[in-house]
Design a binder for these strands. Structure first.
Lengths: 242, 242
DNA sequence: TCAAGTTGTCTAGTATCATAGACAACTTGA
DNA sequence: TCAAGTTGTCTATGATACTAGACAACTTGA
């Protein structure tokens, strides 16, 4: 960072990494292509080569690029990079500034906990739940459909409230929950089902990525659990540690 | 940061500041309301009180909160906080991860440079320009309409290309421009005109914020200049130094 | 074979980040 | 008036970020 700049709170290597990742995401650096050399990148961003190396190291760790000694660094990613952090919520991915984007609600209905859901939410099998179905778009292209379950006892009227606020963060805030984090993200794959195929505008028989995740409050108490189904041909997950 | 966490590249004080700002933006902390005490915030985020103080200091510097010694810290912001950084571009505000959002194109036409536009773009009066009209939404609410001018000589066919890529970053990338920054952001106010009122879904006679800005490439060469008109009752600008 | 260009790995120094503790200055309400 | 709670300021310490320079190891193409 130059001396005269006010500290942004975002490390330089992170700014460089984000810049390169943006370049990959919007196609300036195509899959398989060679990135500019570390020295050139350092000059572009006006930082030290070591800072560039740190940025590239994080991208390599996440599988977005691959460094070849003596040759160069190459782009590995092929689809939309979809970061999964321990604090991931859609409003954070899309960031501050504008209002948070909203999952498009399909329906909210009552449900009861299977043994799986009960274990995930720390409830008893058969406990009353609220089930929310929603779809998420990027550039008007459906990216995923997801099902969210909450305890109907802890969050009475959650379906009606979600229909109004249409945001999980606001829904939780309505119950006094200021902050929460994600635990136990599990990723599998499958074949799209008919209803999901229609919602995703996807042909029958196409592969999907299935993501099961649970959000807990700051004390570790489970709040909501979700199963999201992504069109595999449109996204690529990048799991981060932080 | 706890010892076991991987470094995120985002300073703790910045994470706390972003969290509080998000709380202000989505209404968890209403205007005029008192924030939790510094010690309580520190416990919520599990950081030192000094770290919280640094976060609050940046928010205070930007006018979002106001600290009163012996009493507490109070929320000042009233509308959507719209950060204006020297590197502001919409894709950065909205962040990485999803695809970048796109300004909704209204029309792209030919134009010629007035003396004002010529000075801003480093061209001669009467030079051929391309004018792009677009509207920007947040949660389906129109936030601003903007007019963008580019040199028709330097960026031939820019209107047609923008109609395809619908993104200023991609448009510039198409001409080999990897990086650019914003200079000379000027903010004034006015009364909405009829065409803008319709596009903003705003009643006639309502106030607007007018933002004139110019983006330059990494060598300081002017690329594009814009005039954006914001519905004043929906946004609040926060000019940052970085 | 060899030169040029690339990534990998050291050392070292400065600035910032984050924690920790203590106390002052001030406001509020009992 | 006074106690409790708040923000403001100071010192101190260790960890991390960033820069700087040098050189090794390797790939590519002439």
């Amino acid at each position: 960072m130059s001396v005269q700049d006010a500290p942004s709170g975002v490390a330089l290597w992170r700014q460089v990494a984000d810049g390169i990742e943006r370049g990959i995401a919007d196609g300036r650096f195509a899959a398989g292509e060679k990135l500019p050399g570390e020295i050139e990148i350092a000059e572009t961003y006006r930082v030290n080569r070591h800072t560039v190396r740190r940025a590239l190291a994080t991208l390599a760790e996440r599988g977005l690029v691959r460094a070849e000694r003596g040759s160069g660094t190459y782009v590995e990613a092929r689809r939309i990079a979809y970061p999964l952090r321990s604090r991931t919520r859609f409003s954070e991915i899309v960031g501050a500034g504008g209002r948070e984007p909203r999952g498009q609600l399909i329906e909210a209905t009552d449900d009861v906990a299977t043994r799986e859901l009960a274990r995930e939410l720390g409830l008893k099998t058969g406990a009353p739940l609220i089930r929310i179905e929603s779809v998420r778009l990027a550039d008007r292209t459906p990216i995923c459909v997801s099902t969210t379950w909450l305890s109907a006892e802890r969050f009475p009227d959650a379906g009606r409230i979600f229909a109004n606020v249409r945001s999980m963060t606001k829904l939780l805030a309505h119950y006094g929950i200021r902050d929460y984090r994600r635990t136990s993200t599990r990723i599998t794959a499958g074949i799209v089902e008919a209803t999901d195929a229609a919602r995703l505008d996807l042909a029958l028989g196409r592969p999907i990525l299935v993501v099961d995740s649970t959000d807990v409050d700051i004390d570790g108490q489970p709040l909501v659990t979700k199963r999201a189904r992504f069109a595999a041909e449109r996204v690529e997950f990048v799991v981060e540690s932080g």
